[in-house]
Design a binder for these strands. Structure first.
Lengths: 140, 140
DNA sequence: CGGCATCCGTGACGATACTG
DNA sequence: CAGTATCGTCACGGATGCCG
């Protein structure tokens, strides 16, 4: 396995800092890594896709437009490892595996959803801002 | 300029879809790009750093541990272009440039903060889950 | 101080093929 | 169906140097 999302190699994990040691601003804080799993390109979409339903691998793949098999697999593993996603595998043939959110995953996804909703709602503003910015540069 | 965050090259922007056309799930939706600016590794941290204060470039750089000059510059440009960050440049010598959140940027950052707070709070759970996951693989 | 341009390595990512 | 293994690319991102 030459390519892994992140094994337990967090160097600064055991530095035993103060109680608020999980501040994302420091380079080696594990919360930074988790935050990146959650907010990573595929992390966001995967969690959001699981917000309402329990889904199987390929259903998820269809839902998250553009994700490759590999990246979905990787993303799911990272999220499962962080305890945000639960993997239910039934050893039947053909294999039947379902993914769903854990309680913590649900909480996280709720906040994510709040963010996404805002961004989607305000896209007209964003697009307008982009237009202004580009014009101020392109035209002079 | 061979390396650019993203110019106006969004291919699916003008497809004139339905009102809810800003669904992040479709590959070519501009909201997906904006979401990635916001939730990108440096986007999150930059916005969060600006949550409370107006900051100058190098102050920001010190605050966001590990960011390179180049990435901070790129990130700020993307966020400014999307209308989330406002750049105040005073043409004095030495140059004095300040960055602050726009109203939309503030709204966005508030939601981001809610997410970050949750993740930081729950890091013990995450770490425990990781421990269980790793053990179930390494040992069993 | 606040940038921008250039060079360049690394690894994230996608496509494909294979397994159970 | 649900993945894992392998390989190639390319653009993300760091280091450096220059300019206003």
């Amino acid at each position: 396995m030459s390519e892994v999302v992140e094994q337990s190699a967090e160097p600064g994990t055991e530095r035993g800092g103060p109680p608020d040691a999980f501040d994302v601003f420091s380079r080696n804080c594990p919360s930074r890594a988790t935050l990146e799993h959650v907010t990573g390109r595929w992390g966001i979409l995967t969690l959001t896709a699981l917000a309402h339903d329990t889904l199987r691998f390929n259903a998820l793949r269809r839902r998250v437009d553009g994700v490759s098999e590999k990246m979905l697999s990787q993303t799911l593993q990272a999220l499962e490892r962080d305890g945000l996603v639960i993997r239910d595998a039934q050893p039947v043939n053909p294999p039947h595996v379902e993914y769903r959110l854990s309680p913590l995953g649900r909480e996280t996804t709720d906040r994510l959803l709040a963010l996404i909703t805002l961004v989607e709602d305000r896209m007209p503003d964003v697009l307008a801002a982009r237009g202004r910015y580009d014009e101020a540069r392109g035209t002079g």
